[in-house]
C-alpha cells in the first residue's frame, strides 16, 4: 500500500492556486486521527481556513496533504463545564462569541472575540484553529494564556492535555506534534469578583493588533485588589503573561496602581518593530493599555 491509502483525492477543481496536495475529509475524529497518523509528517489540518488558505494560495506553504476536519460535527460545540468553557475544534469564533453559557462563565471570551477580525471571518474561522495557528497577534492565544487554559491534543490511540504555558512555543509554532489533532480547548473561569477586558490598538478595525492585551482583576469583598494579571499580544513571539498581583495585592483599585502596573509591564516586554509600528511605540502602548485595561477590568469586578 502506498502513501495514498486513505480517503484522499488530488485536486480536481481547476481554478485554485495552491501547489498540489492530497486531500482527506474524514467523517469522524477516529478517521481523522488515522489519516493524520499516516500523513501527519507533511500535513496541515484545515478547519476554518482563514489563515491557512491564503498561505496556500500564495504558495508560501505547500503541505503534501490537507486534512479537512469540517465534517467532524462532533467537535462543533461550545460547552460551559465545571470551572470553565470547553470549545470543540470545529466551533466557529461566532459560536463562541454568541454563546450565552460561555459568556456567563467567562465574559472575556466574547470581549476578545469581538476584536477578532471581521464578522465574515468569525463566521468561518475556529477558535481552536487560531490557537493551533499560534499567531502571537491572535487574540485568543492571549485569552488561553491569561486564563491558564489548556488544549487537548489527540493522536491515534492517545490523548494529552497541554497547558497554555506549554502550548505556545514561538511565532506560528505550537506544541502540537505531527499526527496530532487539537480536538478542544478549555478556558477556565475566573474567581468571583473578577472583571476582565480585552483592549487593543489596531491599524484598521479588525486587523491584527499593533499591541493588545487581555486583563483580569479580582477584588476582595472589601474592594481591595487580590489579583491582577494581563496577557499581551503582538509584543513577543508568544502571548506574554504578566502578573501584577504582587505589585497590587491589598491596594485600592485606583489609577496610581494601574499606572505602576503599566510601568512594570512596559519594562518587562521586549517588542519588536515591524512596518506598522516601532518597538518604542509598542512598548509605550503596553504601558498605556495596561493602565486602561486594569482600570476597566477592576470596574467590572466591583
Amino acid at each position: 500500500m502506498g502513501k495514498r491509502d486513505f480517503p484522499t483525492r488530488m485536486r480536481q477543481d481547476h481554478r485554485v492556486k495552491p501547489s498540489p496536495f492530497g486531500y482527506a475529509a474524514p467523517a469522524t475524529v477516529e478517521e481523522a486521527l488515522a489519516v493524520l497518523a499516516q500523513v501527519g509528517d507533511d500535513a496541515k489540518v484545515l478547519a476554518g481556513g482563514q489563515s491557512l488558505l491564503p498561505i496556500l494560495n500564495m504558495r508560501l506553504a505547500a503541505p503534501a496533504h490537507l486534512v479537512d476536519v469540517n465534517r467532524l460535527r462532533e467537535l462543533a460545540y461550545v460547552r460551559a463545564e465545571e470551572g470553565g468553557v470547553r470549545v470543540g475544534a470545529l466551533a466557529r469564533h461566532v459560536d463562541v462569541e454568541r454563546s450565552v453559557p460561555a459568556y456567563d462563565a467567562l465574559p472575556l471570551l466574547r470581549q476578545a472575540l469581538q476584536l477578532v477580525a471581521h464578522p465574515v471571518i468569525r463566521n468561518r474561522g475556529t477558535t481552536v484553529g487560531s490557537l493551533a495557528h499560534a499567531d502571537p497577534s491572535g487574540e485568543m492565544t492571549a485569552v488561553l494564556a491569561l486564563t491558564g487554559g489548556s488544549v487537548v491534543a489527540a493522536r491515534r490511540g492517545s490523548t494529552r492535555t497541554v497547558a497554555a504555558a506549554d502550548f505556545f512555543l514561538g511565532p506560528l509554532e505550537s506544541a502540537l506534534e505531527p499526527g496530532e489533532l487539537a480536538v478542544s480547548a478549555f478556558f477556565p473561569s475566573f474567581p468571583a469578583r473578577t472583571g476582565t477586558t480585552f483592549l487593543e490598538v489596531a491599524r484598521r478595525h479588525g486587523d491584527y493588533a499593533v499591541c493588545g492585551l487581555a486583563a483580569a482583576v479580582t477584588l476582595a469583598a472589601d474592594g481591595t485588589v487580590t489579583a491582577a494579571r494581563a496577557s499581551y499580544i503582538s509584543v513577543g513571539g508568544t502571548p506574554v503573561v504578566i502578573d501584577f498581583t504582587e505589585l497590587l495585592a491589598g491596594s485600592a483599585p485606583d489609577e496610581s496602581g494601574w499606572h505602576a502596573a503599566g510601568e512594570l509591564a512596559r519594562q518587562q516586554v521586549e517588542p519588536e518593530a515591524d512596518i506598522h509600528a516601532s518597538a518604542d511605540y509598542r512598548r509605550h502602548l503596553v504601558g498605556v493599555l495596561t493602565r486602561r485595561a486594569l482600570g476597566e477590568a477592576a470596574g467590572r469586578a466591583a
Binding site: H118, R203, R204, I275, H276
Partner: peptide
C-alpha cells in the same frame, strides 16, 4: 516590497 498584500497594505475598510 514588504507589504505586497492586503494584509499589510492597509487599504481602509468601510469602518475607517
Amino acid at each position: 516590497l514588504l507589504n505586497a498584500s492586503f494584509m499589510d497594505f492597509l487599504m481602509p475598510y468601510a469602518s475607517e
